[in-house]
């Protein structure tokens, strides 16, 4: 199936990616080509087949390992915030959300 300009705007909004009007045509064309490729698998009869989310299930029937819910490392906000675009008093700064 082929997407329209309205649909790609909606998807881009969901993905939080701004698309300038002049980029829209090229983006739509590339996206529709990829959708044409992946549409090839839609006709396959998969009734009765369980989805496979993860290759681990092949040798880990119990599923993913969980660790005990314990503190294993100290909080180090100053290290982690050293790479943030904007921080103040140990807080991440973002535009005002509530007036």
């Amino acid at each position: 199936m082929s997407l329209s300009h309205d649909q790609i705007r909606r998807i881009a909004r969901l993905a939080r990616i701004a698309i300038r009007p002049e980029e829209s045509e090229a983006a739509l064309e590339r996206l529709n080509r990829v959708l044409g490729l992946i549409d090839e698998m839609r006709a396959v009869d998969t009734s009765g087949i369980e989805p496979m989310a993860h290759p681990l299930e092949a040798h880990l029937p119990g599923g993913q390992r969980l660790r005990p819910d314990q503190v294993v490392e100290p909080g180090q906000p100053q290290i982690y915030q050293s790479v943030a675009p904007a921080v103040e008093d140990g807080l991440y700064l973002v535009p005002k959300v509530v007036e």
Partner: peptide, 11 residues
């Protein structure tokens, strides 16, 4: 979901 089902067929 369809892709995950065919993933199992491939495995």
């Amino acid at each position: 979901l369809q892709a995950q089902k065919i993933r199992r067929l491939i495995a």
